[in-house]
Nucleic acid binder design. Structure first.
Lengths: 335, 335
DNA sequence: CCAATAATTGACATCGTTGTCATTTTACGT
DNA sequence: ACGTAAAATGACAACGATGTCAATTATTGG
């Protein structure tokens, strides 16, 4: 009842296993044999055992992708893009969505090793766990290329995906200034994450450039979630000197800020403009739809996979590279 | 430079490969050997080659999951739930997100076969492609259990996940009636999909039970997307006899309807109540937050995987089963 | 029609792991 | 210290696919 093997196909077709294999691999052969083998394969429902083939060939056709959580709305799209492009290039994606802590990441990395991934995309924010680093180093030493995203693992000889957070937030802040705003608040995600520090820096730079005052109590830090946006939004909008615009470090925070505005009977964007970050799938669906910054996911996916595959096939590439990507400003109704 | 094998570990530790394997598998052994093997394994960064182990054991530890698209906001959560529970049970998930047509599904199914998945969760809506069916039949004949979700592949001897769409929509509709609504519209997704037909049926049943009139031109059918909700919402809300509530077949449609209401200066829920379906992650973030129906994803995942694993380990289970799940009514601000 | 060349074919070995089973080592009771 | 039972070990084979290479078969020109 198990899966038919090439031996059974060969027997059925009365040829040697090797011939059957060759024919199923598409090589030329006597028409007579070809017919018989194809017929036998069809009859038995033969499907090549990929695991065995991989073992033989020393390749796995797998690329590993480690991300924080598919339930974070940014990642499904990222995964889909990576998945599609990898398929085109003949690779499957082995996905690990690790919502938990260090142990879970280590387990995921081990799993990737055990499954012989040929390359790895490691997308986590602020990760510098000793054990993980050691395993990643092993990948690289072994010649399995690694691309790091979302965090900076400095000493590691790996390629990096760098999102230009500073420039992006500068862009949106500049846009607000240009549309006449002078009193602008900023609600950040946790500053323990590099990306959030960069976004804050972008805000400060833009304000400095516009010669606008950055009121320190208009700078809020919290989690990257909706509730935080709501709380901080309420706090900052209740002040007598309330801002006319709020730049938020994530779309979730922005949604919270919008809700805060509504609760205080303020109109968005007339009374307060609100901007987000990431262009999560629902950003365009809300009322008002969200002005936000969109990461070029397809481009990130394409260039990452390209580089990864290049490194896999040409072992002797030079030094680690950095791939830079700048989010686009998407102007909608909220600002 | 390649991955260290058990032979190298054995050599380094001066024991036979079998002993090394046994020790690494956790069996008891002379302390002397144990130390040396563990040290050698650590030194060489040994990681078991899962592919080879699978080949040897005839198991893969893989469960296949085929879904329409991870970018559909329902699925990431579903995947995460499946993924977590499968991990607990010692299985990895092999995910295929097939946005495209039949060919792509067939390719995904073949890939699942080639990778020796021990069981398969096939979650597509309205799928009755000949080729796919044939492959699925092969799975079952071979003794690789299959669970079908989201569609009805009648003749197939497979277990099924059944979402009680009828009851769910009856529940919201009833709730609207109870809160005083009499003029209720329904915006459906494409009626080619079973789930949408059921949702419509639920609406009709509930209205009949409440002895309320179902005006045929308040029944809109379209895609399951936002734009459709907006268009249909505008159309139905512009009528002189506009409804006071709109039941929508998806959250996306509901968001569209909310936007339509806003464009016509109608307040939600004061002027029109709007309800969605699925409790997509952003349903609670919007203003107003969305009253909707939530699928018990964790429970669906748990029970599906349990059944799948049970079938894998106990080959002689009886007839196909059906797992029923009824979405919960989540009452928020929009209705 | 035959020799020479080209195209196919199949026996064998191998990828890394681990079950089987015979052999060796250890531990224990007397 | 010795015999025996129990525990640990290692040689070998097998999982399924496929590269190597020698043997076979087909093709071509003279």
């Amino acid at each position: 009842m198990a899966m038919a093997t090439i031996y059974e196909v060969a027997k059925e077709a009365q040829v040697s296993p090797k011939t059957a294999a060759r024919i199923l691999a598409g090589a030329s052969s006597r028409p007579h044999n070809k017919e018989r083998v194809l017929a036998a394969a069809k009859k038995l429902g033969y499907v090549r055992n990929q695991q065995a083939a991989n073992l033989r060939s020393g390749k796995s056709g797998l690329l590993g992708l480690i991300i924080p959580s598919v339930t974070n709305p940014y990642y499904p799209w990222f995964f889909q893009a990576i998945h599609d492009i990898a398929l085109q290039k003949g690779y499957q994606i082995l996905l690990s969505s690790v919502s938990g802590g260090h142990e879970e990441v280590v387990r995921a990395l081990r799993m990737m090793e055990a499954n012989q991934v040929e390359g790895l995309l490691f997308n986590m924010s602020e990760w510098d766990d000793r054990d993980s680093l050691e395993i990643l180093e092993r990948f690289i030493a072994r010649g399995q290329p690694v691309i790091i995203g979302g965090t900076n693992l400095g000493k590691l000889q790996a390629d990096e995906i760098v999102i230009k957070n500073v420039e992006a937030v500068q862009k949106v802040t500049h846009y607000l200034v240009k549309t006449g705003h002078e009193k602008i608040a900023f609600i950040s995600g946790p500053l323990t994450a590099l990306g959030n520090r960069e976004r804050l820096e972008g805000f400060r730079k833009a304000m400095a450039k516009a010669k606008l005052e950055v009121r320190e109590n208009w700078l809020c830090e919290g989690s990257a979630e909706f509730e935080e946006g709501l709380d901080q939004g309420l706090k900052v909008l209740r002040r007598s000197d309330r801002p006319t615009a709020i730049v938020c470090a994530t779309d979730q925070i922005a949604m919270g800020a919008v809700k805060a505005a509504h609760e205080l009977d303020l109109h968005v964007p007339k009374d307060v403009a609100v901007t987000g970050f990431n262009d999560t799938p629902w950003a365009r669906l809300t009322s008002p739809s969200l002005t936000t910054l969109r990461q070029p996911k397809a481009r990130i996916a394409r260039e990452s996979i390209n580089l990864l595959v290049e490194r896999i096939t040409e072992r002797d590439l030079t030094n680690p590279r950095r791939l830079y990507f700048e989010p686009d400003l998407i102007i909608r109704e909220s600002a």
